[in-house]
Design a protein around this nucleic acid. Structure first.
Lengths: 191, 191
DNA sequence: CGATTCTTTGAAAACAGTCAATCTGTGTGG
DNA sequence: CCACACAGATTGACTGTTTTCAAAGAATCG
């Protein structure tokens, strides 16, 4: 699975053989099965994680037992709980797999080392952060501006591929809409 | 007003006299009055901007003329439309002042130059980006998980100082709640 | 002041959520 | 390969929250 990360990196930045080896040397390959947890609320998250294959979700569970999904992470996406990672605080979130998945974990210190040793890697990381931030801004915008129907339509339009890998009730949990409402939107779209 | 930015920077990183001068040399000081626009939807945003004094808001206006507020930026905060800035695309947002304000603008290219020339400045920028991202994640979480009342309470708790500088209808526009609903929440808090 | 902006109110309507039951499809173990 | 269990989706009736609209009342500012 290391090769998937390598391909991803090769597509974004130029790395020497030595740098690639350095990255490999700190990469922990891991397979997890559907519904298996990577992080449970209360634990401290220690890694930067990359999805080689599969689909990961980050979510919270409220006191009524309802899930609220912070993020979906498919292949070639990084994930983790940044807040817990950076502040060394117990996470408010859970992370588990929606599909059987193969991921790479890089320990916080190792990841920092990579950023320090490999300037282009560091740039990539910052670029990704920039993009993540823009995506999250646009999600906020949708969230405060749109009706349930528009939120759902917007999700389908923005994530056409992802949408048919994710059960409807999870899309709901991501958008803040109940699955029943989504059913009704689908049955009875306005116009 | 340059001194405010200098103070802010001095508090976060160590800068040589020369570096400070470099920053000064590309800083454009600007005063804007309440309700004055810095950016209108459709224009391309060209700067990184820092608030020395006052309060800035970034918002969209939908087809019904309703405002949706993306961000409030008080003193010592950076603002701008990152998406428009980075992609050189017309902004979907407007930026104006809630209070008479004093700000510093740094042109995109100059800002990149600063990041390139001053490593500690670059680090600071990335740290801020990290933090902005975490804040926006937590706003997303609130937005998909909480009732109107909890959103409002959470806003007051998270922004006790800001809250009494911002008219209620703008807090509503930030949270995705009508001002009437906020009035009712205040009149009739549950427990 | 006078004008503007902001907040509050009430009544009605729209929207989305809840609950419980049923239906559907899928995957797994025997 | 079938049967069963289970997860997911749909339905309908109902409830509750939030919005809408219009009007009136505060508060603020020049």
């Amino acid at each position: 699975m290391l090769s998937i990360l390598q391909e991803y990196l090769a597509d974004k930045i130029v790395l020497s053989e030595k740098e690639l080896l350095l990255i490999d040397s700190v990469s922990i390959v891991k397979k997890i099965r559907k519904k298996q947890f990577l992080l449970e609320a209360g634990e401290v998250w220690k890694y930067n994680a990359f999805v080689c294959k599969g689909l990961i979700k980050t979510f919270s569970v409220d006191k009524d037992g309802k899930e609220h999904i912070i993020n979906f992470s498919p292949e070639n996406y990084w994930f983790g709980d940044r807040e817990s990672l950076i502040n060394n605080t117990p996470s408010k979130f859970n992370i588990d797999a929606i599909e059987n998945s193969e991921i790479i974990l890089i320990k916080k210190e190792d990841f920092q080392m990579l950023c320090h040793e490999i300037p282009s890697f560091n740039n990539l990381v910052n670029t990704i952060l920039q993009k993540s931030f823009m995506v999250s801004q646009s999600r906020i915008h949708a969230s405060i501006s749109f009706s349930a129907e528009k939120k759902y339509q917007n999700f389908l339009d923005s994530n056409p591929v992802l949408a048919n890998r994710i059960p409807q009730h999870m899309i709901g949990a991501y958008l803040g809409i109940t699955p029943e409402t989504i059913t009704r939107i689908r049955r009875n779209p306005k116009k």
